[in-house]
Computed example of a mutant assay.
Amino acid sequence: MNQAIIFDMDGTLFQTNKILEPALEATFDVLRENGLWDDVTPINKYREIMGVPLSVVWETLCPDFSQDDREQSNELFQEKLNEMIRRKKGALYPHVVMTLQSLSTKYFLFVASNGYEEYLQTIVDTYDLHHYFKNIYSIQLIPSGNKSELVKKVVEENDLAKAWVVGDRLSDFKAAKDNALTSIGVNFDFAQLDELKQADIVINDMKELTTLIP
Score class of each variant (00 low, 15 high):
8 D>Q: 08
67 Q>G: 05
130 H>G: 06
80 K>Y: 09
27 T>G: 00
24 L>K: 02
19 I>C: 08
17 N>P: 00
11 G>N: 07
195 E>S: 10
196 L>R: 07
147 K>D: 05
133 F>D: 02
80 K>Q: 12
111 V>Y: 06
111 V>H: 03
204 N>K: 11
185 G>D: 08
184 I>R: 00
126 T>R: 09
168 D>K: 09
90 G>H: 04
129 L>A: 03
169 R>E: 04
44 N>W: 01
81 L>N: 12
9 M>H: 04
191 A>D: 07
85 I>E: 06
158 N>F: 12
19 I>Q: 01
1 M>Y: 07
24 L>P: 02
200 D>H: 13
145 G>V: 13
50 M>R: 09
118 E>I: 14
20 L>C: 09
69 D>P: 07
91 A>V: 00
81 L>D: 08
90 G>A: 05
123 I>P: 07
32 R>I: 04
190 F>R: 05
19 I>S: 08
86 R>Q: 13
132 Y>F: 15
130 H>T: 05
61 L>N: 07
17 N>C: 06
187 N>H: 15
27 T>C: 03
128 D>A: 15
123 I>Y: 03
44 N>L: 09
203 I>C: 04
206 M>L: 15
44 N>K: 13
108 F>Q: 12
123 I>L: 05
136 I>T: 08
138 S>Q: 11
171 S>V: 13
184 I>K: 01
212 L>K: 04
99 T>L: 01
211 T>C: 00
108 F>D: 14
105 T>Y: 01
88 K>E: 14
165 V>S: 05
195 E>M: 09
3 Q>L: 00
17 N>I: 13
174 K>A: 13
45 K>E: 05
195 E>H: 12
198 Q>N: 12
151 V>L: 06
26 A>V: 00
114 N>Q: 14
34 N>T: 02
137 Y>N: 08
89 K>Q: 15
214 P>Q: 01
97 V>H: 02
64 D>I: 11
102 S>M: 01
93 Y>E: 07
157 E>N: 14
27 T>A: 01
35 G>A: 08
125 D>I: 02
56 V>I: 14
27 T>R: 02
48 E>D: 12
68 D>T: 13
96 V>F: 05
30 V>K: 10
12 T>M: 07
73 S>G: 11
64 D>P: 04
20 L>W: 01
63 P>K: 06
87 R>D: 10
46 Y>G: 04
47 R>Y: 03
18 K>L: 15
142 I>M: 13
51 G>N: 04
189 D>Y: 15
70 R>I: 04
1 M>R: 05
112 A>R: 04
145 G>T: 14
115 G>E: 09
77 F>D: 03
120 L>Q: 15
118 E>R: 13
78 Q>F: 10
49 I>M: 06
143 P>S: 11
47 R>A: 01
85 I>R: 09
85 I>T: 06
117 E>Q: 13
201 I>S: 05
104 S>L: 02
107 Y>D: 01
177 K>E: 15
106 K>W: 01
47 R>V: 15
61 L>V: 00
22 P>S: 06
166 V>R: 08
83 E>Q: 11
204 N>I: 00
52 V>E: 12
21 E>A: 12
158 N>L: 02
57 V>L: 08
108 F>K: 14
82 N>M: 12
139 I>N: 07
94 P>I: 00
131 H>R: 08
171 S>W: 11
21 E>F: 10
99 T>F: 00
129 L>D: 00
195 E>D: 15
191 A>S: 15
80 K>L: 08
